[in-house]
Write a protein that binds this DNA or RNA. Structure first.
Lengths: 270, 270
DNA sequence: ACCTGAACACCGTTCAAGT
DNA sequence: ACCTGAACACCGTTCAAGT
């Protein structure tokens, strides 16, 4: 992202940085007419991170992107940390944006499997739409200790647990499912967006001959050298589907067993 | 909307910050005798993050913790970004630290299942030993685009792929296993250390009556309110074992099918 | 050879002052 | 009521100067 030149940090007078600032300032003059408010600031922050990366976001530059001095932001946002929390909330809440303006996941779904698949694809869509923001979704301290990213809001957890218990899951099984589901989503999507970021940062590095460099590095690793072409294939979408279906199968088995035996032990599921 | 004193950053003149600086400076005077070198600096950075958190780490404070001005560090470390990469490498490499000083995972293991279990527990031990550092392990740009945290070094990937292919996995199946395994480790361990961090940050917030506050928040969420005691139970270790065993079962099935049918399609596994 | 003082170009944040 | 200028206490980083 911003630390492009590999290890050489020659950005004291980085031309990129100047270009970024000038560009955003110029673009801002067009969107300035309306007054500031918290929503406009959060949206500007989302756009800025999408375009320039998290490391580039400063209060001063965000202000500039809105055609305003940094100090003006503090009327609407308590500080930078709160701003980042707001960015995460805003991005996650777009899960519920649809034609009706209502929660598409809680209503009109066909069984809990359908619900979990819709939700998973919704979260994945967000992650891919904002690859520079998703790591924040994963790492910002949650609202409560038992909230597990990327399902970060009480509303989402309630929706999840409510749907599963209404479908026959015991409370224990629903909680176990919540844990397994969040682990699955976080692991897969964080790795997917990380690899997205790694792809683009490679293009900004004209560091000699990349082909020769990679092969030199791999000389001592025979298995790696053999597997490298396979490793470079992007199977993210297929793997996501596979892992999701596997998880649903596990949950289905747990639910069926609980119905037959009457037990719903947390240990039945991870 | 919890934008109260919980998330406000009122540390302009934070007494904690003063205490931290003074404490580390005082402690540093005892470990000063030897000269600086890269290793001592990286170890000091690891210790500092473990104790005070990543946000507290600055070049100036790290220098102070070594009894030296910040500028002296630049003889041995190109900059802060490189320093963080070094911290990650150093922590991950402790996987190979043992009595023999050799790789315990590549040798003397009893089959690939045993290998994967040892490796998983090794990574988990590291994550729990350095909960403030593990998010860095997850988020730092990897050495190659196809390197998937938390298995961050070419050495580790080679060890992984070599062990599985030597055990009868096709290259495709080994790569698919690598992807599933890294997703599993990252998701579970990142959530585990995040929740560890959330626990301690709660103790630093004497924000009125916590019991009343929590109950108020949950009033609108019936399923959540019912499940809250279950959600607060820490089942991390058991869930980790469960998910690991489930993953190994899947891999075993893939391996067996490949041996029987001769196929080893990547799509067999996510 | 190794460290430091001073400096530069930034930060986040506060607050009196402007309009 | 809303924004800004100036200021404060920090940053990361460079480099000539000290020892």
């Amino acid at each position: 992202m911003p630390e492009d030149k590999a290890t050489t940090s020659d950005d004291v007078q980085d031309p990129d940085l100047v270009a970024v600032t000038e560009g955003t300032v110029a673009a801002a003059e067009m969107t300035r007419p309306a007054g500031l408010d918290r929503d406009r600031i959060l949206q500007a922050a989302v756009d800025f991170i999408d375009e320039h990366g998290l490391a580039m976001l400063t209060m001063r530059r965000l202000g500039a992107s809105l055609g305003v001095e940094a100090m003006a932001l503090y009327r609407y946002v308590p500080g930078r940390e709160d701003l980042l929390d707001g960015v995460v909330d805003r991005v996650v809440e777009t899960l519920f944006d649809n034609d009706d303006g209502d929660d598409i996941y809680v209503g009109d779904h066909h069984g809990w499997q359908d619900y979990l698949m819709r939700l998973a694809h919704g979260v994945r869509r967000i992650a891919l739409a904002h690859p520079a923001i998703f790591p924040l979704v994963a790492s910002r301290p949650p609202a409560a200790p038992w909230v597990r990213p990327p399902l970060r809001s009480l509303r989402m957890v309630e929706s999840f647990l409510g749907t599963l218990t209404a479908s026959g899951f015991s409370d224990q099984a629903a909680v176990a499912a919540y844990r397994a589901y969040s682990s699955f989503l976080l692991g897969h999507l964080l790795l997917e967006v990380t690899q997205l970021g790694a792809q683009v940062s490679l293009l900004d590095q004209p560091e000699g001959d990349p082909e020769a460099q990679a092969n030199t590095d791999l000389a001592d690793f025979p298995a790696l050298m053999r597997a490298e072409p396979l490793l470079s294939l992007d199977k993210s979408a297929a793997e996501f589907e596979e892992a999701l279906e596997n998880l649903l199968d596990r949950l289905e088995r747990v639910l069926a067993e609980a119905r037959n035996s009457g037990t719903g032990d947390v240990a039945d599921l991870s």
